[in-house]
Amino acid sequence: MFMQDRDGNLANGAIANLVDEVGGALVQIEGLPPSVSVDMSIAFLSTAKLGEELEVTSRLLGERGRYKGTLVVVRNQRTGEVIAEGRHSLFGRQASKL
């Protein structure tokens, strides 16, 4: 299975995908094409076994014009331990002001 590494932990690539998807969903504007990922920086701080419940939160760090930055945090829901923290930069279209 591609979602886990050889030790049975959630793969770093799966966590990176979460950061990408959740960060992108946060800045998505209905009716416009999705924003494009420009940069991601992820700190992998712990591990999670496949099947453990995770809490994924995100917040907008800021925006300038069509450029936006998000922070995505992945935690073990039971223990509260931070599994990973990702900063995600995106570029996209702006909603019309008309």
Rank of each mutant, 00 (worst) to 15 (best):
A16W: 05
Q94W: 04
V36C: 12
V74D: 06
E63L: 09
E81P: 10
T79M: 06
G69Y: 05
V22I: 09
K49V: 03
G51S: 06
E21S: 08
S37M: 06
M40Q: 11
L54M: 06
E85I: 02
R78K: 14
E52K: 06
Y67C: 15
V22F: 01
A14D: 06
L61F: 00
D39H: 13
S41W: 05
A84S: 05
R93T: 03
H88F: 02
S89G: 10
F2K: 10
L61V: 01
Q28G: 07
E85Y: 01
Y67I: 13
Q77W: 07
L50E: 03
D39N: 14
F44P: 00
S89D: 06
K68V: 11
D39R: 14
L18R: 05
L10F: 12
P33V: 12
A95V: 12
S58I: 01
T47G: 14
E55S: 12
E85F: 00
G92S: 12
I42G: 05
V38F: 15
G92V: 08
E30N: 14
E63R: 13
S35D: 11
S41V: 09
G86R: 02
G13T: 09
P34E: 10
G92T: 15
G13W: 04
V27N: 00
M40H: 05
Y67F: 12
T47S: 12
E30H: 13
L60H: 00
Q4W: 10
D7Q: 12
M3H: 11
G24H: 02
V73G: 08
R87W: 04
L18S: 06
